[in-house]
Amino acid sequence: MALDIEKPIEGNFQIIGGEFDTAGGASSHLKSKLVELGVEEGIIRRASIATFEAEMNVIIYAAAGRLSFLITPTYIEIKIEDMGPGIEDLDQAMEEGYSTAPDWVRDMGWGAGMGLPNMKKNSDEFKIDSVVGEGTSIEMIMKLP
């Protein structure tokens, strides 16, 4: 059953690096929208977790970034682009438990090396591109039944 919406719903957010206290605003907004639309709970959970992880990555590693989502009748698309240091070795970054986070980030409960694996696990399609010194962009899609 595809979502009964007339036109796609969009959201755009700016994320500032280092802002741990307000982290999760974009994901919270997306979650409310999905609840409102009556999307199945499991899909809401997957989309919320993947988006929150993406937001946290910008907050932990980048100066700033932009997150946008698009909800269509048949899928949810989430895109994140940051102005961060970029990732040197993408394969390594995707490994569970690999992290370059400093100790102070670990002491805030992040940087266990599960962020990217979490995003991938919760997406039906996951694409990541990164240029060292420029930034990282991620696209995720969750299909709606």
Partner: peptide, 25 residues
């Protein structure tokens, strides 16, 4: 205490026991 691990393994209706008292919890 590591929030990604919580999101990776947690199931619904579970209790989270943590030493982290940050808003991100």
């Amino acid at each position: 205490d590591m929030m990604s691990t919580v999101m990776y393994y947690h199931t619904a209706n579970s209790l989270l026991i943590t030493g982290l008292s940050q808003p991100s919890v």
